[in-house]
Design a protein around this nucleic acid. Structure first.
Lengths: 221, 221
DNA sequence: ACCCGAATTAATGTATACATTAATTTCAGG
DNA sequence: CCTGAAATTAATGTATACATTAATTCGGGT
Protein backbone atom coordinates (compact mmCIF):
# COMPACT_ATOMS: atom_id res chain seq x y z
CA UNK A 1 0.00 0.00 0.00
CA UNK A 2 1.90 3.02 -1.23
CA UNK A 3 0.86 6.22 0.39
CA UNK A 4 -1.37 8.53 -1.56
CA UNK A 5 0.12 11.89 -2.27
CA UNK A 6 -1.34 14.36 -4.66
CA UNK A 7 0.76 15.59 -7.54
CA UNK A 8 0.60 19.06 -6.05
CA UNK A 9 2.27 17.82 -2.88
CA UNK A 10 4.84 15.94 -4.89
CA UNK A 11 5.52 19.01 -6.99
CA UNK A 12 6.06 21.08 -3.86
CA UNK A 13 8.49 18.57 -2.41
CA UNK A 14 10.30 17.86 -5.65
CA UNK A 15 10.70 21.49 -6.64
CA UNK A 16 11.82 22.37 -3.12
CA UNK A 17 14.46 19.63 -3.31
CA UNK A 18 15.61 20.79 -6.73
CA UNK A 19 15.90 24.37 -5.50
CA UNK A 20 17.72 23.55 -2.28
CA UNK A 21 20.18 21.31 -4.10
CA UNK A 22 20.72 24.04 -6.67
CA UNK A 23 19.72 21.72 -9.51
CA UNK A 24 17.36 24.52 -10.37
CA UNK A 25 19.94 27.25 -10.34
CA UNK A 26 19.39 30.36 -8.28
CA UNK A 27 18.32 33.22 -10.48
CA UNK A 28 17.18 31.02 -13.35
CA UNK A 29 13.68 31.14 -14.78
CA UNK A 30 11.49 28.27 -15.87
CA UNK A 31 8.21 28.07 -17.68
CA UNK A 32 5.37 26.20 -16.09
CA UNK A 33 5.27 23.74 -18.96
CA UNK A 34 8.98 23.06 -18.64
CA UNK A 35 8.69 22.21 -14.97
CA UNK A 36 5.55 20.18 -15.60
CA UNK A 37 7.30 18.08 -18.21
CA UNK A 38 10.29 17.66 -15.94
CA UNK A 39 8.12 16.41 -13.10
CA UNK A 40 5.94 14.30 -15.36
CA UNK A 41 2.64 16.00 -14.66
CA UNK A 42 0.41 18.70 -16.11
CA UNK A 43 0.73 22.40 -15.49
CA UNK A 44 -2.07 22.51 -12.93
CA UNK A 45 -0.28 20.93 -9.95
CA UNK A 46 2.94 22.73 -10.87
CA UNK A 47 1.17 26.08 -10.80
CA UNK A 48 -0.30 25.28 -7.41
CA UNK A 49 3.09 24.19 -6.10
CA UNK A 50 4.71 27.39 -7.33
CA UNK A 51 2.21 29.52 -5.47
CA UNK A 52 3.06 27.70 -2.26
CA UNK A 53 6.79 27.93 -2.91
CA UNK A 54 6.41 31.63 -3.58
CA UNK A 55 4.76 32.00 -0.19
CA UNK A 56 7.67 30.08 1.31
CA UNK A 57 10.07 32.57 -0.23
CA UNK A 58 11.81 30.17 -2.59
CA UNK A 59 10.55 31.38 -5.95
CA UNK A 60 8.94 34.36 -7.59
CA UNK A 61 6.16 33.86 -10.11
CA UNK A 62 6.52 36.39 -12.89
CA UNK A 63 3.73 36.36 -15.46
CA UNK A 64 5.01 35.43 -18.90
CA UNK A 65 8.56 35.34 -17.63
CA UNK A 66 8.28 32.04 -15.83
CA UNK A 67 9.10 30.89 -12.33
CA UNK A 68 12.22 32.56 -11.03
CA UNK A 69 14.31 30.70 -8.50
CA UNK A 70 15.03 33.40 -5.96
CA UNK A 71 18.70 34.04 -5.40
CA UNK A 72 19.81 35.16 -1.95
CA UNK A 73 21.92 38.28 -1.73
CA UNK A 74 24.05 39.30 1.25
CA UNK A 75 21.27 41.72 2.23
CA UNK A 76 18.80 38.86 2.10
CA UNK A 77 21.08 36.79 4.28
CA UNK A 78 21.10 39.52 6.87
CA UNK A 79 17.31 39.80 6.79
CA UNK A 80 16.88 36.08 7.11
CA UNK A 81 19.45 35.57 9.83
CA UNK A 82 18.04 38.46 11.78
CA UNK A 83 14.67 36.76 11.93
CA UNK A 84 16.12 33.30 12.44
CA UNK A 85 18.29 34.47 15.30
CA UNK A 86 15.30 35.93 17.01
CA UNK A 87 13.04 32.95 16.53
CA UNK A 88 15.52 30.22 17.37
CA UNK A 89 16.53 32.09 20.49
CA UNK A 90 12.88 32.11 21.43
CA UNK A 91 12.80 28.37 20.86
CA UNK A 92 15.83 27.85 23.12
CA UNK A 93 14.27 30.01 25.81
CA UNK A 94 11.03 28.10 25.64
CA UNK A 95 12.72 24.73 25.82
CA UNK A 96 14.78 25.76 28.84
CA UNK A 97 11.68 27.05 30.58
CA UNK A 98 10.02 23.66 30.33
CA UNK A 99 12.55 22.08 32.69
CA UNK A 100 12.71 18.92 30.63
CA UNK A 101 14.18 15.69 31.96
CA UNK A 102 17.47 14.25 30.71
CA UNK A 103 15.41 11.67 28.91
CA UNK A 104 13.39 14.30 27.10
CA UNK A 105 16.60 16.06 26.14
CA UNK A 106 18.15 12.85 24.82
CA UNK A 107 17.68 13.93 21.22
CA UNK A 108 19.76 17.05 21.80
CA UNK A 109 22.47 15.11 23.64
CA UNK A 110 22.58 12.55 20.88
CA UNK A 111 23.02 15.18 18.20
CA UNK A 112 25.83 16.80 20.18
CA UNK A 113 27.55 13.44 20.48
CA UNK A 114 27.24 12.87 16.75
CA UNK A 115 28.67 16.29 16.03
CA UNK A 116 31.69 15.58 18.20
CA UNK A 117 32.28 12.21 16.64
CA UNK A 118 31.96 13.57 13.14
CA UNK A 119 34.41 16.32 13.96
CA UNK A 120 36.98 13.89 15.34
CA UNK A 121 36.76 11.90 12.15
CA UNK A 122 36.89 15.02 10.05
CA UNK A 123 33.57 14.17 8.42
CA UNK A 124 32.35 17.66 7.84
CA UNK A 125 29.21 16.60 6.03
CA UNK A 126 28.14 14.28 8.84
CA UNK A 127 28.84 17.13 11.23
CA UNK A 128 26.52 19.42 9.28
CA UNK A 129 23.78 16.81 9.37
CA UNK A 130 24.10 16.37 13.12
CA UNK A 131 24.14 20.14 13.55
CA UNK A 132 20.92 20.38 11.56
CA UNK A 133 19.40 17.63 13.70
CA UNK A 134 20.33 19.51 16.86
CA UNK A 135 18.65 22.68 15.69
CA UNK A 136 15.64 20.78 14.43
CA UNK A 137 15.25 18.92 17.70
CA UNK A 138 15.56 22.14 19.67
CA UNK A 139 12.92 23.71 17.50
CA UNK A 140 10.51 20.83 17.93
CA UNK A 141 10.99 20.73 21.68
CA UNK A 142 9.77 24.33 21.73
CA UNK A 143 6.34 22.96 20.94
CA UNK A 144 5.25 26.10 19.12
CA UNK A 145 4.00 24.84 15.78
CA UNK A 146 4.00 28.23 14.15
CA UNK A 147 7.55 28.85 15.25
CA UNK A 148 8.54 25.50 13.76
CA UNK A 149 7.03 26.28 10.42
CA UNK A 150 8.55 29.69 9.96
CA UNK A 151 11.99 28.66 11.05
CA UNK A 152 11.94 25.72 8.67
CA UNK A 153 10.87 27.94 5.81
CA UNK A 154 13.64 30.42 6.53
CA UNK A 155 16.24 27.73 6.89
CA UNK A 156 15.28 26.50 3.44
CA UNK A 157 16.05 29.92 2.08
CA UNK A 158 19.65 29.88 3.33
CA UNK A 159 20.38 26.19 2.88
CA UNK A 160 22.12 26.68 -0.46
CA UNK A 161 24.45 29.25 1.08
CA UNK A 162 25.24 26.93 3.97
CA UNK A 163 25.96 23.98 1.73
CA UNK A 164 28.18 26.14 -0.40
CA UNK A 165 30.27 27.37 2.49
CA UNK A 166 30.44 24.04 4.27
CA UNK A 167 33.85 23.22 2.90
CA UNK A 168 35.10 26.79 2.99
CA UNK A 169 34.71 27.35 6.69
CA UNK A 170 37.17 26.66 9.48
CA UNK A 171 36.71 23.48 11.49
CA UNK A 172 33.71 24.23 13.74
CA UNK A 173 35.19 23.51 17.15
CA UNK A 174 33.60 26.61 18.60
CA UNK A 175 30.20 25.59 17.33
CA UNK A 176 30.38 22.31 19.21
CA UNK A 177 31.34 24.04 22.43
CA UNK A 178 28.43 26.43 21.91
CA UNK A 179 25.98 23.59 21.63
CA UNK A 180 27.30 21.94 24.77
CA UNK A 181 26.92 25.17 26.70
CA UNK A 182 23.43 25.66 25.39
CA UNK A 183 22.49 22.13 26.34
CA UNK A 184 23.65 22.71 29.88
CA UNK A 185 21.71 25.94 30.20
CA UNK A 186 18.60 24.15 28.97
CA UNK A 187 19.15 21.19 31.27
CA UNK A 188 19.33 23.45 34.33
CA UNK A 189 16.30 25.40 33.13
CA UNK A 190 18.10 28.71 32.74
CA UNK A 191 15.89 30.31 30.10
CA UNK A 192 17.71 33.64 29.93
CA UNK A 193 21.09 31.98 29.50
CA UNK A 194 19.73 29.58 26.88
CA UNK A 195 18.33 32.50 24.98
CA UNK A 196 21.48 34.60 25.12
CA UNK A 197 23.75 31.69 24.27
CA UNK A 198 21.73 30.78 21.27
CA UNK A 199 21.54 34.33 20.13
CA UNK A 200 25.30 34.72 20.34
CA UNK A 201 25.72 31.42 18.52
CA UNK A 202 23.54 32.55 15.67
CA UNK A 203 25.05 35.99 15.37
CA UNK A 204 28.48 34.41 15.18
CA UNK A 205 27.26 31.97 12.53
CA UNK A 206 25.81 34.78 10.50
CA UNK A 207 29.00 36.79 10.59
CA UNK A 208 31.06 33.78 9.67
CA UNK A 209 28.80 33.00 6.76
CA UNK A 210 28.55 36.53 5.37
CA UNK A 211 32.32 36.99 5.75
CA UNK A 212 32.92 33.78 3.85
CA UNK A 213 30.55 34.76 1.09
CA UNK A 214 32.18 38.18 0.83
CA UNK A 215 35.68 36.70 0.82
CA UNK A 216 34.79 34.42 -2.04
CA UNK A 217 32.99 37.12 -3.94
CA UNK A 218 29.62 35.42 -3.73
CA UNK A 219 27.09 38.23 -4.00
CA UNK A 220 24.23 35.96 -4.89
CA UNK A 221 23.60 32.38 -3.91
CA UNK B 1 -7.36 52.26 -16.97
CA UNK B 2 -8.28 49.93 -14.17
CA UNK B 3 -5.45 47.77 -12.94
CA UNK B 4 -5.34 44.19 -14.05
CA UNK B 5 -5.59 41.71 -11.23
CA UNK B 6 -5.95 38.02 -11.75
CA UNK B 7 -8.91 36.21 -10.27
CA UNK B 8 -6.54 34.28 -8.06
CA UNK B 9 -5.29 37.51 -6.49
CA UNK B 10 -8.84 38.73 -6.10
CA UNK B 11 -9.83 35.45 -4.50
CA UNK B 12 -6.96 35.72 -2.03
CA UNK B 13 -7.90 39.25 -1.04
CA UNK B 14 -11.63 38.66 -0.97
CA UNK B 15 -11.42 35.45 1.03
CA UNK B 16 -8.95 37.04 3.43
CA UNK B 17 -11.35 39.93 3.95
CA UNK B 18 -14.28 37.56 4.48
CA UNK B 19 -12.28 35.56 7.02
CA UNK B 20 -10.96 38.53 8.95
CA UNK B 21 -14.40 40.10 9.14
CA UNK B 22 -15.83 36.77 10.28
CA UNK B 23 -18.30 36.71 7.40
CA UNK B 24 -16.85 33.30 6.80
CA UNK B 25 -17.28 32.03 10.32
CA UNK B 26 -14.34 30.57 12.18
CA UNK B 27 -14.58 26.79 12.23
CA UNK B 28 -16.96 26.59 9.30
CA UNK B 29 -16.22 24.56 6.21
CA UNK B 30 -16.89 25.47 2.61
CA UNK B 31 -16.68 23.55 -0.61
CA UNK B 32 -14.55 24.92 -3.40
CA UNK B 33 -17.57 25.23 -5.64
CA UNK B 34 -19.48 27.16 -2.99
CA UNK B 35 -16.70 29.72 -2.62
CA UNK B 36 -16.23 29.88 -6.37
CA UNK B 37 -19.90 30.69 -6.88
CA UNK B 38 -19.80 33.23 -4.09
CA UNK B 39 -16.84 35.03 -5.66
CA UNK B 40 -18.21 34.70 -9.16
CA UNK B 41 -15.39 32.68 -10.65
CA UNK B 42 -14.49 29.07 -11.35
CA UNK B 43 -12.93 26.62 -8.92
CA UNK B 44 -9.43 27.00 -10.30
CA UNK B 45 -8.51 30.42 -8.90
CA UNK B 46 -10.33 29.61 -5.66
CA UNK B 47 -8.25 26.47 -5.21
CA UNK B 48 -5.08 28.45 -5.82
CA UNK B 49 -6.15 31.11 -3.35
CA UNK B 50 -6.92 28.52 -0.70
CA UNK B 51 -3.45 27.05 -0.97
CA UNK B 52 -1.97 30.47 -0.36
CA UNK B 53 -4.34 31.18 2.52
CA UNK B 54 -3.45 27.83 4.03
CA UNK B 55 0.20 28.83 3.92
CA UNK B 56 -0.77 32.09 5.63
CA UNK B 57 -2.42 30.14 8.42
CA UNK B 58 -5.97 31.29 7.77
CA UNK B 59 -7.58 28.12 6.45
CA UNK B 60 -7.04 24.41 6.31
CA UNK B 61 -7.75 22.51 3.13
CA UNK B 62 -9.29 19.16 3.97
CA UNK B 63 -9.85 16.85 1.01
CA UNK B 64 -13.53 16.13 0.53
CA UNK B 65 -14.42 18.12 3.63
CA UNK B 66 -13.93 21.51 2.15
CA UNK B 67 -11.99 24.57 3.16
CA UNK B 68 -12.06 25.01 6.92
CA UNK B 69 -11.77 28.52 8.30
CA UNK B 70 -9.25 28.02 11.07
CA UNK B 71 -10.51 29.04 14.48
CA UNK B 72 -8.01 30.38 16.96
CA UNK B 73 -7.93 28.76 20.38
CA UNK B 74 -6.35 30.27 23.50
CA UNK B 75 -3.35 28.00 22.89
CA UNK B 76 -3.09 29.34 19.36
CA UNK B 77 -3.24 32.88 20.71
CA UNK B 78 -0.30 32.14 22.96
CA UNK B 79 1.69 30.65 20.09
CA UNK B 80 0.95 33.56 17.84
CA UNK B 81 1.61 36.27 20.40
CA UNK B 82 4.82 34.61 21.43
CA UNK B 83 6.13 34.89 17.89
CA UNK B 84 4.65 38.34 17.33
CA UNK B 85 6.16 39.68 20.53
CA UNK B 86 9.55 38.47 19.46
CA UNK B 87 9.36 39.80 15.95
CA UNK B 88 7.85 43.19 16.69
CA UNK B 89 10.40 43.74 19.43
CA UNK B 90 13.05 43.03 16.83
CA UNK B 91 11.43 45.62 14.60
CA UNK B 92 11.46 48.21 17.39
CA UNK B 93 15.11 47.48 18.13
CA UNK B 94 16.05 47.81 14.48
CA UNK B 95 14.20 51.09 14.08
CA UNK B 96 15.84 52.56 17.15
CA UNK B 97 19.25 51.48 15.93
CA UNK B 98 18.81 53.47 12.72
CA UNK B 99 18.85 56.78 14.58
CA UNK B 100 16.11 58.19 12.40
CA UNK B 101 15.34 61.89 12.25
CA UNK B 102 12.19 63.41 13.69
CA UNK B 103 11.00 63.79 10.13
CA UNK B 104 11.47 60.12 9.39
CA UNK B 105 9.61 59.29 12.58
CA UNK B 106 6.72 61.58 11.68
CA UNK B 107 4.48 58.64 10.81
CA UNK B 108 4.85 57.21 14.29
CA UNK B 109 4.28 60.57 15.95
CA UNK B 110 1.20 61.13 13.82
CA UNK B 111 -0.28 57.78 14.78
CA UNK B 112 0.34 58.50 18.46
CA UNK B 113 -1.42 61.85 18.10
CA UNK B 114 -4.38 60.20 16.43
CA UNK B 115 -4.59 57.62 19.17
CA UNK B 116 -4.68 60.31 21.82
CA UNK B 117 -7.32 62.32 20.00
CA UNK B 118 -9.47 59.27 19.43
CA UNK B 119 -9.20 58.36 23.08
CA UNK B 120 -10.23 61.84 24.22
CA UNK B 121 -13.30 61.62 22.03
CA UNK B 122 -14.02 58.10 23.17
CA UNK B 123 -13.84 56.81 19.62
CA UNK B 124 -12.54 53.38 20.34
CA UNK B 125 -12.67 52.22 16.76
CA UNK B 126 -10.64 55.16 15.51
CA UNK B 127 -8.19 54.46 18.31
CA UNK B 128 -7.79 50.87 17.14
CA UNK B 129 -7.12 52.06 13.61
CA UNK B 130 -4.48 54.51 14.74
CA UNK B 131 -2.94 51.81 16.91
CA UNK B 132 -2.76 49.51 13.91
CA UNK B 133 -1.17 52.31 11.90
CA UNK B 134 1.46 52.83 14.58
CA UNK B 135 2.44 49.18 14.60
CA UNK B 136 2.39 49.02 10.83
CA UNK B 137 4.57 52.09 10.52
CA UNK B 138 7.01 50.72 13.07
CA UNK B 139 7.19 47.47 11.18
CA UNK B 140 7.85 49.17 7.86
CA UNK B 141 10.53 51.41 9.33
CA UNK B 142 12.38 48.26 10.29
CA UNK B 143 13.08 47.76 6.61
CA UNK B 144 13.24 43.98 6.89
CA UNK B 145 10.83 42.77 4.22
CA UNK B 146 10.65 39.24 5.55
CA UNK B 147 9.88 40.52 9.00
CA UNK B 148 7.12 42.65 7.56
CA UNK B 149 5.50 39.76 5.77
CA UNK B 150 5.47 37.35 8.67
CA UNK B 151 4.19 39.86 11.16
CA UNK B 152 1.38 40.84 8.83
CA UNK B 153 0.41 37.22 8.33
CA UNK B 154 0.34 36.59 12.06
CA UNK B 155 -1.59 39.74 12.77
CA UNK B 156 -4.21 38.53 10.32
CA UNK B 157 -4.60 35.40 12.38
CA UNK B 158 -5.48 37.28 15.56
CA UNK B 159 -7.40 40.13 14.01
CA UNK B 160 -10.79 38.52 14.66
CA UNK B 161 -9.96 38.13 18.32
CA UNK B 162 -8.85 41.74 18.57
CA UNK B 163 -11.94 43.07 16.88
CA UNK B 164 -14.08 40.97 19.14
CA UNK B 165 -12.51 42.27 22.32
CA UNK B 166 -12.26 45.86 21.20
CA UNK B 167 -15.41 46.88 23.04
CA UNK B 168 -14.84 44.57 25.97
CA UNK B 169 -11.54 46.00 27.06
CA UNK B 170 -10.85 48.83 29.46
CA UNK B 171 -10.03 52.24 27.99
CA UNK B 172 -6.46 51.87 26.72
CA UNK B 173 -4.74 54.74 28.52
CA UNK B 174 -1.79 52.57 29.36
CA UNK B 175 -1.37 51.58 25.77
CA UNK B 176 -1.03 55.20 24.71
CA UNK B 177 1.57 55.87 27.36
CA UNK B 178 3.46 52.78 26.19
CA UNK B 179 3.59 54.06 22.64
CA UNK B 180 4.84 57.44 23.75
CA UNK B 181 7.62 55.84 25.76
CA UNK B 182 8.57 53.60 22.87
CA UNK B 183 8.66 56.56 20.54
CA UNK B 184 11.04 58.39 22.83
CA UNK B 185 13.36 55.41 23.12
CA UNK B 186 13.43 55.14 19.34
CA UNK B 187 14.00 58.85 18.88
CA UNK B 188 17.04 58.79 21.15
CA UNK B 189 18.31 55.64 19.44
CA UNK B 190 18.13 53.43 22.51
CA UNK B 191 17.73 50.03 20.84
CA UNK B 192 17.72 47.95 24.02
CA UNK B 193 15.07 50.12 25.65
CA UNK B 194 12.94 50.13 22.51
CA UNK B 195 13.12 46.39 22.40
CA UNK B 196 12.25 45.87 26.04
CA UNK B 197 9.46 48.42 26.01
CA UNK B 198 7.84 46.88 23.02
CA UNK B 199 8.21 43.42 24.46
CA UNK B 200 6.53 44.47 27.69
CA UNK B 201 3.80 46.20 25.71
CA UNK B 202 3.07 43.07 23.73
CA UNK B 203 3.16 40.74 26.69
CA UNK B 204 0.72 42.98 28.49
CA UNK B 205 -1.54 43.07 25.42
CA UNK B 206 -1.48 39.31 25.19
CA UNK B 207 -2.42 38.85 28.81
CA UNK B 208 -5.18 41.38 28.55
CA UNK B 209 -6.55 39.67 25.47
CA UNK B 210 -6.39 36.12 26.78
CA UNK B 211 -7.91 37.19 30.09
CA UNK B 212 -10.76 38.88 28.27
CA UNK B 213 -11.38 35.85 26.10
CA UNK B 214 -11.36 33.59 29.14
CA UNK B 215 -13.66 35.89 31.10
CA UNK B 216 -16.20 35.82 28.31
CA UNK B 217 -15.87 32.11 27.79
CA UNK B 218 -14.49 32.44 24.28
CA UNK B 219 -12.47 29.28 23.75
CA UNK B 220 -12.39 29.63 20.01
CA UNK B 221 -12.46 32.73 17.85
C1' DA C 1 16.66 53.80 -41.91
C1' DC C 2 13.33 54.73 -38.41
C1' DC C 3 9.05 55.04 -36.03
C1' DC C 4 4.72 53.48 -34.65
C1' DG C 5 0.80 50.74 -34.74
C1' DA C 6 -1.16 46.32 -36.17
C1' DA C 7 -0.60 41.39 -36.36
C1' DT C 8 1.52 37.61 -34.38
C1' DT C 9 2.96 34.76 -30.89
C1' DA C 10 4.02 32.63 -26.73
C1' DA C 11 3.06 32.49 -22.44
C1' DT C 12 -0.17 32.62 -18.45
C1' DG C 13 -5.00 32.69 -16.58
C1' DT C 14 -9.42 30.38 -16.41
C1' DA C 15 -13.07 27.23 -17.14
C1' DT C 16 -14.42 22.81 -17.69
C1' DA C 17 -14.50 17.93 -18.55
C1' DC C 18 -12.97 13.98 -16.73
C1' DA C 19 -10.38 10.72 -13.37
C1' DT C 20 -9.85 9.47 -8.91
C1' DT C 21 -11.01 8.73 -4.42
C1' DA C 22 -13.00 8.47 0.12
C1' DA C 23 -17.41 8.64 2.46
C1' DT C 24 -21.96 7.00 2.43
C1' DT C 25 -25.56 4.11 1.40
C1' DT C 26 -27.48 -0.10 0.04
C1' DC C 27 -28.33 -4.70 0.28
C1' DA C 28 -27.25 -9.74 0.77
C1' DG C 29 -26.10 -13.06 4.18
C1' DG C 30 -25.86 -14.49 8.71
C1' DC D 1 -31.14 -6.68 13.30
C1' DC D 2 -26.40 -6.46 12.49
C1' DT D 3 -22.28 -6.82 9.44
C1' DG D 4 -19.56 -5.82 5.79
C1' DA D 5 -18.71 -5.76 0.90
C1' DA D 6 -20.26 -3.59 -3.25
C1' DA D 7 -22.48 0.26 -5.47
C1' DT D 8 -23.23 4.93 -5.29
C1' DT D 9 -22.17 9.49 -4.70
C1' DA D 10 -20.10 13.74 -3.95
C1' DA D 11 -16.26 15.86 -3.60
C1' DT D 12 -11.41 16.82 -4.94
C1' DG D 13 -7.40 16.17 -8.18
C1' DT D 14 -5.74 16.59 -12.86
C1' DA D 15 -5.48 17.39 -17.66
C1' DT D 16 -6.71 20.05 -21.24
C1' DA D 17 -8.98 23.34 -24.20
C1' DC D 18 -9.69 27.87 -24.60
C1' DA D 19 -9.42 33.06 -23.35
C1' DT D 20 -6.58 36.62 -22.34
C1' DT D 21 -2.68 39.27 -22.45
C1' DA D 22 1.80 41.31 -22.90
C1' DA D 23 5.96 41.00 -25.64
C1' DT D 24 7.66 40.67 -30.09
C1' DT D 25 7.70 40.97 -34.88
C1' DC D 26 6.35 42.88 -39.03
C1' DG D 27 5.35 46.30 -42.33
C1' DG D 28 3.86 50.68 -44.28
C1' DG D 29 4.45 55.61 -44.10
C1' DT D 30 7.68 59.21 -43.57
Amino acid sequence: MKKQRSNTERAIQDLRALIISNELEAGSSHLEQELATRLGMSRTPVREACLVLEELGLVEVIPRRGIRILPVSPEDMIEIYEVLTELESLAAERVARQQLSTQELAGLALAIGQMEQALERGEIEAWAEADARFHDELLHLSGNRRLIRIVQAFNDQVRRARNLTLYLRPVPHKSNADHQELYEAIARGDAAAARDLHRAHRIYARELLTALLAKHGLTSV
